[in-house]
Amino acid sequence: MGRKGEETRGRLLDATQDLIEGGGYFGAGLNQVVAASGAPRGSLYFHFPGGKDQLVGESVRRAGHEIGLLVRDLAETAPDTASLIQGVLTLLGDRLEASGWRRGCPVATVALEMAAVNDALQEVCSEVYGSWEDMLRERLAADGHAEAGDVAVTVLALIEGALLLARAHRSREPLDRVARRILALL
């Protein structure tokens, strides 16, 4: 695929990510994706022959990977897990607030809507969450936490819940409160 094809594919994925973060799976209709991306309708089917589920799945996977890269970048400079978690919460809070409280977790909305009814999308959501959990577990283990796996799941759940509450309240306060509890936990 040439550069132009990759650019078109990227625009379709970007539009889908924005639409699903703001309105979920059902808020990302194919007509909306085409309109938001500026791509020709035929490009949608060329790049995503599996239809909407393939498009959403790849968008969630891509967004999860992007967040993962941001966390890895933070991990390189954070002296310990507590500092890393504080940086992650700040980063996600900044992202959420800058988007007008629309862009919380790029996985959560799809997971909530589709995990019980769509095996392929459930697997993608599980894969992304698993990769984030692995990153946290590895860092916790490196810092000497004996129950790194359990703590990683707890921290991830607290972050996800805080993002949901911050979005619902349109306030960073839930993120700040959870940051304090995570620091106490660590």
Rank of each mutant, 00 (worst) to 15 (best):
Y25C: 01
A75L: 06
L44A: 12
L121N: 03
Q54N: 11
A39S: 13
M1V: 14
L44S: 12
Q122K: 04
G38F: 14
R95M: 12
V107C: 10
V34T: 11
L70D: 15
L89F: 07
G10F: 11
L156G: 01
S131M: 14
Q32A: 13
V33I: 13
T154C: 05
R72N: 13
R139G: 00
E123G: 12
S171R: 07
A63L: 09
C125H: 05
E58A: 08
D134G: 09
P49F: 14
H169A: 08
F46G: 09
N31W: 11
A148W: 05
A157L: 06
V151A: 08
I20Q: 03
L12A: 06
C125E: 07
L175R: 02
A111Y: 14
L92I: 09
G104C: 06
L13C: 05
E127P: 08
K4Y: 15
A184C: 05
A162D: 00
L70P: 10
G10S: 14
L74P: 02
E76D: 15
G5W: 14
L158P: 00
E173H: 08
G29Y: 01
D14F: 11
I20N: 01
A166W: 02
D94T: 12
M135Y: 01
A78Q: 04
A116E: 12
A141N: 04
G93P: 04
S83I: 00
G161D: 09
L112S: 12
V151Y: 03
Y25S: 02
R170N: 07
Y45A: 13
P79N: 04
E6Q: 15
R180V: 08
P79K: 06
G64W: 12
A179K: 02
E21L: 10
I182T: 00
G23T: 03
G29F: 00
A15S: 09
G68W: 12
E58V: 11
R9E: 14
A111W: 12
P106N: 09
A184H: 08
R103I: 06
D176N: 09
G64M: 13
L121I: 07
A39N: 11
G22A: 05
S99T: 04
L70A: 15
E66T: 14
R61F: 15
S126T: 11
G10Q: 14
S99M: 05
V56S: 06
R139A: 00
G2E: 15
A162P: 01
A108G: 07
P106V: 06
A157K: 02
L156E: 07
L96D: 04
A152C: 03
V151H: 03
A166Y: 02
L84N: 02
G10E: 15
